[in-house]
């Protein structure tokens, strides 16, 4: 799998390269500025891009902007954005075109290489990988009044909804919560009924519907 990597701190870039190579990814370009990233994405057309939000020359959201611009030119180009902090605003912008292939994770998530690589693969396959922190803030940002349909979910259903919003498949949810996949399917159909969302077998469309619902 071909990867373009953008990270301005040498230590982290080097670490990421080594980590991804250890999991048999091919790093086709490892760049450290926004303009270089855009050029690499457009020219190399990788299977997935792993991008740090903050990059030179401006040290603002240069990486995010380059990724969004690349996705405008190459619709659906899978991008996994890494950041020291997560903002709902950025998550919303990344998800705005509704085509999937989007990841948005805290940099800390690379501490767990298996999990991280799973997220990269998911994004490369057109799926979604939202950081649990983003999801937690989404939940926190919804009102807690009784009129809110979310309040009608059981604790377990909220748990399932949260993991689902991260972009996990039913199998992954089952594994995380240590329940059967059938139980997960039951929970999800309950959730979709309570929230009045269109049921979909497609993992990705399901996630996007959930995320759209939460904000």
């Amino acid at each position: 799998m071909r990867v373009v990597l953008a990270e301005d701190l040498f230590l982290l870039r080097d670490g990421l390269v080594r980590l991804l190579e250890a999991y048999d990814f091919e790093i086709v370009a490892a760049v450290d500025t926004g303009p270089d990233l855009l050029q690499a994405l457009v020219e190399k057309r990788p299977d997935v891009a792993v991008v740090d939000v903050r990059l030179p020359p401006t040290f603002t959201d240069e990486g995010l902007q380059a990724a969004l611009e690349a996705r405008r030119r190459i619709p659906g180009l899978p991008v996994l954005v890494l950041s020291q902090y997560v903002e709902q605003l950025y998550a919303k912008e990344l998800l705005a075109d509704g085509t999937g292939g989007i990841g948005y994770l805290l940099k800390d998530r690379v501490f767990d290489p298996d999990e991280f690589v799973d997220a990269v693969r998911r994004v490369a396959a057109g799926g979604t990988a939202m950081d649990p922190e983003v999801i937690a803030r989404l939940f926190a940002g919804t009102s807690s009044s009784a009129a809110d349909p979310l309040a009608r979910l059981t604790a377990r259903e909220r748990e399932v909804l949260g993991i689902m919003a991260e972009g996990r498949s039913n199998a992954a949810i089952a594994e995380r919560l240590v329940i059967t996949e059938r139980a997960v399917i039951k929970h999800t159909s309950n959730i979709f009924a309570k929230l009045d969302l269109p049921v979909s077998d497609d993992d990705n469309r399901r996630v996007l519907a959930v995320l759209a619902y939460l904000k």
Partner: peptide
């Protein structure tokens, strides 16, 4: 991360006031 947010919120540095306030709005329970 929490400390940095309290000193100078990253989104404010990245995007300026308008977007930072939008981000605040998104994080608010209201």
């Amino acid at each position: 991360r929490d400390l940095v947010r309290g000193i100078h919120p990253p989104v404010l540095a990245d995007r300026g006031l308008a977007d930072a306030v939008r981000a605040l709005g998104m994080d608010s329970p209201l």
